[in-house]
Design a protein around this nucleic acid. Sequence first.
RNA 1: GGGCGCGUAGCUCAAACGGAUAGAGCAUCGGAUUUCUAAUCCGAGGGUUGCAGGUUCGAUUCCUGCCGCGCCUACCA
Length: 676
Amino acid sequence: MYRYLEHLLAQRVLECLERRHPGVTLPRIVIEQPPKVDLGDFAIPMFPFAKPLRSAPLKIAEAIQAEIGEMAGIAHMTVTPPGYLNVKVDRAWMAAALASDRKEPGETPAGKILVEHSSINPNKAAHIGHLRNAVLGDTFVRLLRYAGREVDVQNYIDNTGVQVADVVVGFTHIEKKSRAEIEALARQSRFDYYCWDLYARVSQWYEADPQNKQVRLQTLHAIEDVTSETAAVAEVISTAVLRRHLETMDRLDIEYDFLPRESEILHLHFWDAAFTKLKESGVLTFESQGKNKGCWVMRRAGTRTETKGADSEKELDDVLTDIGTQGLGLGASGISEEDQKVIVRSNGTVGYVGKDIAYHMWKFGLLGRDFGYRKFYRYPNQHDCWISTTDGKKDHPHFGDVAEIYNVIDARQSEAQNTVIEALRGLGHDEAAEHYTHFSYEMVALTPRCAAELGYALSEEDQIRSYIEVSGRKGFGVKADDLLDRLIASAKQEVDSRHPQLSEPERLGIATQISIGALRYFMLKYTKQSVIAFDFKDALSFEGETGPYAQYAVVRASSIFRRAGLDPDDFSLKLPQSELATAFSGQDGDEIWELWLASSKTSSVVEQCIATTEPAYLAKHVFQLAQLFNTFYHRHPILIEADEKRKQFLLATVAVVRRELIRALTIMGITVPPVM
RNA sequence: GGGCGCGUAGCUCAAACGGAUAGAGCAUCGGAUUUCUAAUCCGAGGGUUGCAGGUUCGAUUCCUGCCGCGCCUACCA
């Protein structure tokens, strides 16, 4: 409801100003919340209008106040120095709307959205860095779906790269295992852990003798030939590890719809189709000199200081003729060597950025080719996850060909992402480029203390750092399943001591819900651009600003209703609006109103999260709501309340807060246990 | 060297689009009528928002310069 009033207000203020000042271009109307409730529920700063309207902020506020007229849901407005128009909501109106969970008017944009996340190399166990990616991505998917959008979830699988090749080398050259032996191992429960260790050993093996790296190259090439034994082994390994990743993510209620694999991008010749178009459009140019001689190159994204029109280009041309291209280090492509990004190597093979361009053309339905599809994994809820194949089934859902895409990929890959966007633009697909969002986030690193705890010897240099980057190659990191296991063990201990009367499966179930709540909340409470310095102490905490804190608030709300013998989901407020108005104007009316107001904000927060690709706002909202509720809970004993009308009012407050908390937690992928 | 990002309380982090007295959690210290169970609540201390300028009614937020830190910058994927 908050969102609805916010939009309504902005629109009415805009109309009002346009009527008074026709033809003037106005700045965007910003609506915020005043620092304290007694000032109002919305604040509209008037300062930005002072200059364009040639009038004092307070004068403008007064004019709007006088002319804007009545609005359902708005009680009144006050002009507040130094230049705000503060707006108070009609509390009874809002409360009635919230209590009946009235649907907010508003339309949702059409067009399918593709969110890609996780994309873990299928050669080792998933670690906490992958967890951040998956939780961010999955939560964003839930945000979009809550907002009414249609979303496909994809997880890109690089099953033909060096990382898989390295583990193949480990099995075949270090451990000298046969294909049958590897297949047997791959059926073991935590095969990904086995690969984790082996991958680290392979890295050491390469370092021990540079000759060994030759084996890596041979293996990499062998994998590309589908008929080879090596390719078969790679397939066994990557598929088994991929299955493990899906299982790990399923523990956190994270599911995918489609798994496009690099092997199909290769074998279905996606690149050939893209290459033709890239050459025709001039995005790619052939370099005939310098260190990239014989390669097809592209200008690295963000290297040109934007073309400033004909003049400067002409100047540039003059300069070029004067010095000669050699002097500037420009190749035949006209791009300086360090600004060149090699897309096709001199031996004719294509690099990963090239494949990525082709793949993204497919996403937008611009390639003219499609994957084959077959079912790969069925979730316990019967949802099917599909995977790419060369031929595949005829009957399959339609993937790709979407209106918007979001790629959840860490900040280190932003240059590559921008290069793909630039390629799309260069191909003339500006529309697609505009709807391509790199959902960028920072990595998860380990604190030196955490690293020491895990038994890694640190250099003196590393010991004084605030964090150290994880490395799959070195086997340095915290595995996702290990963290989850530790969380569950720790939560289980608490549940055991608090609820000894419950059965073992019940207690384990509760501990699992709490662990997922703690983990998902932990991954979401930091803003994207902040590096998470991981520490078990913080991650294993169930107190303060954590998932369990919010879950506990809901448990308390539910328990009030249970004790009262009422169903919170089916509780209807029987007070007329006049009674509600009285309740809110009482002694603690402001304090309780704050709780209702916060409850009304979910859809507004969801909108903000989507607009800024920042799910952390939702976590903040959940925490704020839970915190307000806990304070309220302490101050107002409800079941012993003698005044029946007052009791109804308090119960309605609890019901609404509970519903909104559950709603927001659900978007975060967090469920609430029956007791805690 | 170039590109991107960061620097806020002892620690970990908030404050989207410039706004009203810069907020939380953890840690520390002191409390909560044995109550809808305390995984909770209340209180205290703790800040020149890295430094120096600039823009303006107003700057943690925008601009410039410096200092410090991280990531990216391969014919690897």
